[in-house]
Amino acid sequence: MRRARTVLHVLMVLTIWPMVAHAQEDPPKKVLSIELAFDHIDVTSGFSGAQIEVFGHRRDKFTDVAIVVKGPEKNIIVWKKAQILGAWINRYGIRYRRVPLYYGYAHTGGEVFENQETMGEIGLGIDGLMKGKADLKNPATKTDAYQAALVNSMRAKKVYPEEPQQLNFINDYFFRTRFLLPASAPTGTYKIQSYLFKDGKLIESDTDTMKVEQVGLNAFVHESAQDHAVLYGIVSILLALASGWFVGILRVRP
């Protein structure tokens, strides 16, 4: 009898506890929440591209939403050629710091996205992204042509978009969008940033990450080359020797 009552107590506590705990720790409600369809993309031997799919929900339909995808960042030098003694060589260079090797963005297309300053602050849109990236000794240097060359080169590789992606709203609150990764997309950590604007002001932002990684044989080769470089070199040469020798033996005798 005593035992049965103890069990009952425990059951009651277990049932009520979560409710109490929930009431106590209720976090401030976020207006915007997003979710990725996949949190990693595997780059296999037959990798021919993939897509990053983002689902989202906003609690307030009178807001503007922007989603930005940034691949791993590297420094980039843009060279302009000039003729010296008849030969066209790289003469003038401008360095751009921490440029993402993949970039994609989508937004609801409100008035706020026409404000260049806002776009520059959060790095939205190609111009916003490139703002302040150039490493200049003289800030008055004209860089338009250099930046255009960089962006065109990225667009040719399909890693920068021509235009923003659409945010597809299922109703006033739920939306989804997808960003295409070409086969040449760089591997590494991708940042998916979300921004929420209300009355032209940024009120919420959040960052998710996802990995684009080589898997299987590719990953093994990549890691071996990085972590055991000398051994990798020796094994490569031995493989080359062995395959060359093998075919030499198979050769039809004259």
């Binding site: 080359a225 000398v230 990798y232 070199g233 020796i234 094994v235 490569s236 493989l239 080359a240």
Partner: peptide
Amino acid sequence: AFAALMHASISQTVDVILAFWLIAGGV
């Protein structure tokens, strides 16, 4: 072979998969 070892250990630029297919054609 000596140069390949240098490239692999100093700059990690020997792609063994690419080499394999080049060899397959080359032999």
